[in-house]
Design a protein around this nucleic acid. Structure first.
Lengths: 238, 238
DNA sequence: CAGTGTGAACCTTTTCACAGCA
DNA sequence: TGCTGTGAAAAGGTTCACACTG
């Protein structure tokens, strides 16, 4: 159910999924370190900045190659370059946002995208009241124009910020327009053909997960109060 | 680094983390099914609606108890009740949002929270230009008032929607105000004392991960074009 | 000799496959 | 008979601990 290994002539190009998920975190931490004037960082220092442990950092980075120096650590600037290259951030990416509601507008205005090499190249919606309006300095286009916009701006990634009910339909149209990577903010599970990547971010889901652990903490506290011997809980996550 | 098992007198109260992460997805799917008039669902049907496979559904649900009927499936309404109970959603939760910028405002207006039992009870910021303003029908308070707001509204969960630079400071103040669950939208890694749960949602990170796989698809396509025998890739995620 | 890079051990999660029940 | 619930196997991820090197 997950990417199979390819076979390349030299080295092993397949990086574990868990590692890929952490590379952006390392990158952020490294950029912060660089801005603070740090030249070299040890796995332990990077680990602290990224909120993981040092063994994980070393193992993760070893998948990219041998970019550290034994006895010294990693050169921050060089490692930034390597991580960026690995993530495919040496090029700029154009994205389209579908659904110009609350969330869609907030995302359109979000500076963090541009700062990290993602250009919001198109906004689309189906609501005639919104089409033609300006949001974040851009004209909102009709969803019908998506194929043309994708071609024109070389859009590779689509952001789904529509209501749940519209999500699958809009996803289908994104795929038909040639988009093969979708970031789904709608609470619906969408299905896409093989070869198309989807990541789902569901805000309410995150709160529900926190609620679960919060509830459990309350239950444990209750038990403790009643004198049962209960193991301690550490619940920092992600 | 993860919750340790407790020991309770009957049954095993510890549900795997991976399962907890999926329960909200099942819940959403179940509610959709119920609204569509479905009375009973098989693990395979629920699996499809949730975007996973049926073995996972059965294993996950088995952690909650034996709520299915062999030969039949699961009663949708009953299962909804059980999942909601397990997640701690039989009670309402009050949340506070810190940082009333783009994202903070979008979150304040987000209907999905209320629909799933989360009440935005307080908005706080440090910007005097924002304090006193009305957002989503609520008055924005100063961050200084957080402890009082937490007490007054019984706030259990804090949502961090501040700029990166302020994130750690605001998180510290949330913890001091008595909040023990934080949903972090800032791109910074925050550290909290044991017993406080944090989940991080980083929008740019998600795009970077998609960029990685998108780049890899391009590379594979390139190799294929050159005639190398390359295994096929299926990259649907989460 | 400090700190990387990495086999090996360990733990978690997923998948398989089927016994057992309605 | 048709499904759930679950041991057992497989895969994936994390941590340990140390050989190795700049």
């Amino acid at each position: 159910m997950r990417p199979r290994r390819s076979h390349s002539s030299r080295g092993d190009r397949s990086i574990p999924e868990a590692t890929v998920d952490r590379l952006p975190v390392y990158l952020r931490a490294l950029v912060d370190l660089a801005e603070a004037g740090t030249i070299t960082v040890r796995s332990e220092g990077l680990a602290e900045a990224a909120g993981v442990n040092s063994a994980k950092v070393r193992k993760d980075l070893s998948h990219l190659g041998s970019y550290g120096t034994r006895g010294k650590g990693y050169d921050v600037a060089y490692l930034i370059h390597q991580v960026r290259r690995e993530l495919g951030l040496t090029q700029h990416w154009s994205i389209a946002i579908a659904g110009v509601g609350n969330l869609g507008q907030a995302l359109s205005n979000y500076q963090g995208f541009a700062e990290r090499g993602f250009r919001v190249a198109a906004l689309v919606d189906v609501d005639d009241a919104k089409v033609g309006e300006r949001v974040a300095g851009m004209v909102v286009h009709h969803l019908d124009d998506l194929p043309e916009l994708v071609r024109e701006h070389g859009i590779a990634i689509g952001v789904l910020a529509t209501p749940q009910a519209a999500a699958q339909e809009v996803a289908d149209r994104m795929v038909r327009a040639g988009i093969r990577s979708i970031l789904n903010f709608a609470s619906a599970v969408i299905s896409v053909p093989p070869g198309v990547s989807v990541r789902k971010v569901d805000l309410a889901t995150e709160l529900q997960i926190l609620a679960f652990y919060e509830q459990r903490k309350a239950t444990l506290a209750e038990l403790k109060r009643r004198g049962s011997a209960v193991a301690d809980v550490a619940t920092s996550r992600s």
